[in-house]
């Protein structure tokens, strides 16, 4: 009987009208994203202004060479480690904040908390770099000047020349800037959960923590999966501002602060080579692509409904 109904429904859903609804979006993406993809040719060209994109001479893989020079391993390691840390910690913190917000239920406090947590996201990295400097500066910085003196331990730290602190500093800054933003996504998902489920659980005598564990988190699973998959696609990218502005581009910190994006920027700042920048972007994309296809295939096996595609 069930089968019959399903069949009937499939009959009711015609793909044509649905496709029509999606059409404006499809057209936009086609124009904005697909047409310009001919630009990837640049990665294999020795660009000349006179000859243009198509006319320039082919350059083989020469534009890619610099990406694999010298510190390549270190840079890739940094990029990956930071991204993993950000994905894991970012998700955990965002979920905690979202759950707490939703539990408050009361309008006024939620308003205050949420607006405040969102504020850092509105600041540009340049300004955040300044704030970081205000705290960490060796001579007049807030930490060396006030906090350390207050605590009486007396040992000033040369923050901008000591690489070992930076994985922590950058992670903190990242979380500070992004938690408010990403917790909104989870808040929306929690808002969408059918309230009757919670009511039923309450009647069954489930405590708050149990409700969270057995209802909220499982209901968030699809969102978590999808956000993580998308993050995996960007795993070879890094937020340029975070890694460039916040450490004030201090050379002494490169060991722990340099990522693919800052490396490319430094290398090409003087050369301004169009082909080489295109090569870097393509390299990041291809790695992300391979990883995300793999990850998606795994998700599809385990939990078909939540796969990206």
């Amino acid at each position: 009987m069930k089968k019959v109904i399903k069949k009937k429904n499939r009959g009711l859903t015609k793909s044509g009208p649905l496709l029509l609804i999606a059409l404006p979006g499809i057209i936009y993406l086609f124009i904005n994203n697909y047409i310009p993809m001919f630009g990837v040719f640049l990665a294999f060209k020795d660009y000349s202004y006179v000859k243009g994109i198509f006319g320039s001479d082919w350059n083989g893989l020469n534009n890619f060479k610099y990406l694999f020079k010298q510190d390549a391993f270190l840079i890739i390691r940094n990029t990956l480690l930071y991204n993993f840390t950000f994905i894991i910690l970012g998700t955990i913190f965002a979920i905690i904040v979202a759950i707490l917000m939703c539990e408050l239920g009361e309008k006024f406090r939620v308003k205050i908390f949420q607006s405040s947590l969102l504020l850092p996201n509105l600041l540009s990295w340049v300004v955040i770099g300044f704030i970081g400097y205000a705290f960490l500066n060796a001579d007049t910085g807030f930490i060396n000047n006030t906090l350390i003196k207050l605590m009486g331990s007396g040992k000033e730290v040369a923050w901008y020349t000591t690489p070992k602190y930076w994985p922590f500093i950058l992670t903190i800054v990242y979380l500070w800037k992004n938690i408010g933003y990403s917790s909104i996504i989870y808040m929306a998902s929690i808002s969408g959960i059918d309230k009757s489920i919670f009511e039923a659980a309450k009647i069954d005598g489930a405590k708050k923590l149990e409700q969270i564990k057995h209802i909220t988190i499982p209901m968030l699973k699809p969102t978590i999966i999808i956000l993580t998959l998308m993050a995996v696609g960007r795993i070879f990218y890094s937020d340029f501002g975070l890694f460039y502005q916040v450490p004030m581009n201090s050379g002494a910190l490169y060991k722990t602060t340099q990522t693919i994006d800052t490396y490319v920027y430094h290398g090409l700042m003087e050369l301004q080579d169009i082909g080489m920048s295109a090569a870097a972007a393509l390299y990041q994309s291809v790695v992300g692509f391979v990883l995300v296809i793999t990850a998606n295939a795994v998700v599809r096996k385990v939990d078909n409904d939540n796969a990206l595609f």
Binding site: A22, I26, L29, N32, N33, Y34, I35, P36, M37, F38, G39, V40, L42, I53, M230, G233, R234, I274, S277, A278, A281, L282, S285, G288, F289, V292, L308, F309
Partner: peptide, 19 residues
């Protein structure tokens, strides 16, 4: 197919020059 079509735009772009 549509999901893949959309997701693909997140990974690859032609760069600023072509757009």
């Amino acid at each position: 197919i549509l999901s893949f079509f959309v997701f693909f735009t997140m990974l690859f772009n032609g760069g600023i020059v072509s757009s």
